[in-house]
Design a protein around this nucleic acid. Structure first.
Lengths: 339, 339
DNA sequence: CTGAAAGCGCTTACAG
DNA sequence: CTGAAAGCGCTTACAG
């Protein structure tokens, strides 16, 4: 592996100059720069990360992370991903500033402001899909603070990229799984999180799209639980009472535990085919008990670590990398026997 | 973060001495060592990886990797994991030496020998379950070259750990998936790889165990294809001709493509429920075509990167880490809509 | 526009 | 048994 020192010797200049050329720091004679670049290319120079890391010891890159409140255990896993990656990058000077706030535009706005005050260099956020947030994020961008959305995207945001699930596809997968695991006439109900949340409505569409041409399926009810377990209990209880013919349920988001409780209380545990998303402990418990048939997971940990990795790479690279529009996590179906 | 320099100043000794104490290098006065250790503990000293990496620039850790031949595309993925991790560890001086050999004890033996000749410091291997291999690996251990088994384990080997699938569990998962996706009477056939291969027979047992108390299921045939697609074609063709009542097939290992071809040629594509393992391109193609219902994957890439990570950590750490007996990969069910 | 020098934290001959 | 010094590769004030 070629080093800066070698290149400097070959080019007959100092190491400092080579460094300037290689990192596009301004103020180097054009001819000198060309000569250095040619040699660097010939030797296929790749910077040594250990050297970079050591020299960067005093530098600091502070990356703000805004995800949802502690009430939603799904984000515990995403956070685990952030922390794992942050530990790995800590010796390159990467530091993270985590804020877990309520799912509300105002809470997010004030979290964003406090991030700015603490001097973040980049922001990773699960945005509430709202005009206010959109504006706030776009003005961050103008300040030169790049934004990456994670887990959930928002419309019209000027973000670097989105890291998370393909929600339409995951809804379709839920529909397909429903087909695979049922026979005959299926009367289904859907329990959504919040129809104002982009990803929840996308899962719903995916599910409906996939099943609409299958004459076996009839979707007779769809309600929102706003990701709240108590609300979820009531809604499911009510839905199943009004529609005793329902024999399958699809939960597009959280509130799985409350909903399943209602099913247990109605003594319908065995007679319903239930598909959910994600694998928080309460969901795993319901799978273990045989109440939920399968759950479709979305690599929350990967979402955290990947988004931080991309942000850090972007912040530290000289030639800004070209990012994909979206980085989709894999869908992972789990049943009792694979958890 | 405390540094060696700080500790040296506080202890009133040189940095060299601190280094000797911290890394258990011999020949330090006991009292001095104690003093240094106390201070290090007080400051919660953690070595700076960048510093270590830079200083280790001239060192080299060569790790041998022996997996199966290029005919088995599953190992392409495992290899991708090895290479990704090797790139990450390269600036700590980690180098890998990959040998892909035929699934045969003699081929493995000679690969092991050539690894020794090239001076490996550790070996990661997917061992053929055979006395000869076992002896060879145990003698490696005696030479001080640690061994990790990956993807497949062998009996009575003195290895550091095993990184791979829990095959019994994955067979059970296949059985459960079969139950979930069928109704009424199911007459099943099993296509095994090689009954002498530990993991293949474990999957078979898991599958049979899971289904034996379910009166809906009848397993009427079980044949070996030795992971060969042509052989697999013949076996499946023959099995389905002799047992026209078969309406479900389980492939415990490779040879999926050949088997599915036979099914197509017999015009039975729609009428069989088929469960397989892994997601090599040919398998994905058969899922896309609706011939295979679901496939259970085992994180091949993770198996490669995890095993290399563990080996490198073991080789480079001062206090040898205590490893688990086994590191199991997650099981990941995929259907057409999630690939 | 460029160079010489110091420094990031750890390791390692070498000298004593 | 211990210290002083050089070195790993990259970066960064500072001086010119």
């Amino acid at each position: 592996m070629a080093t800066i020192k070698e290149i400097a010797e070959l080019a007959g200049v100092s190491r400092g100059t080579v460094d300037r050329v290689l990192n596009n720091r301004s103020g180097v004679n054009e001819d000198t720069a060309k000569k250095v670049m040619t040699i660097a290319r010939q030797l296929d120079y790749k910077p040594n990360k250990a050297g970079m890391a050591l020299a960067a010891q005093k530098k600091k890159y502070l990356i703000g992370i805004i995800v949802f409140s502690k009430k939603n255990p799904f984000f515990d896993e995403v956070l685990a991903g952030f922390e794992e990656k942050a530990a790995e990058l800590s010796f390159y000077g990467c530091e993270i500033l985590v804020k877990r706030v309520a799912y509300h535009p105002d809470a997010q706005i004030s979290a964003i402001e406090s991030c700015i005050n603490e001097g973040i260099h980049g922001l990773i956020i699960t945005p509430y899909n709202d005009k206010k947030i959109c504006d706030a994020l776009n003005s961050l961008n103008k300040k030169g603070i790049p934004v990456i959305t994670v887990n959930s995207d928002a419309e019209n945001i000027n973000r670097l990229t989105y890291v998370g699930s393909d929600y339409l596809k995951s809804g379709e997968a839920a529909g397909a799984l429903m087909q695979l695991t049922t026979i005959g006439k299926v009367t289904a109900g859907v329990i959504m999180g919040d129809s104002h949340i982009l990803c929840h409505s996308q899962r719903h569409s995916g599910f409906v799209n996939h099943l609409q041409n299958d004459s076996r399926f009839d979707i007779v009810a769809c309600e929102e639980n706003f990701d709240d377990d108590l609300k979820s209990y009531d809604i499911v209880y009510d839905m199943l009472s009004r529609h005793p013919e329902i024999n399958a349920l699809y939960f597009t988001a959280a509130g799985v535990h409350g909903g399943c409780k209602a099913i247990q209380d109605l003594d319908k545990a065995g007679s319903l085919r239930i598909i959910t998303h994600d694998d928080m402990p309460t969901t795993l418990d319901m799978i273990e008990k045989g109440i939920i048939t399968a759950t479709i997971c979305q690599q929350p940990k990967w979402q955290g670590s990947k988004s931080l990795e991309l942000m850090f790479e972007y912040l530290t690279s000289v030639e800004k990398p070209i990012l994909e529009k979206c980085y989709y996590s894999e869908l992972n179906i789990k049943i009792k026997e694979t958890i």
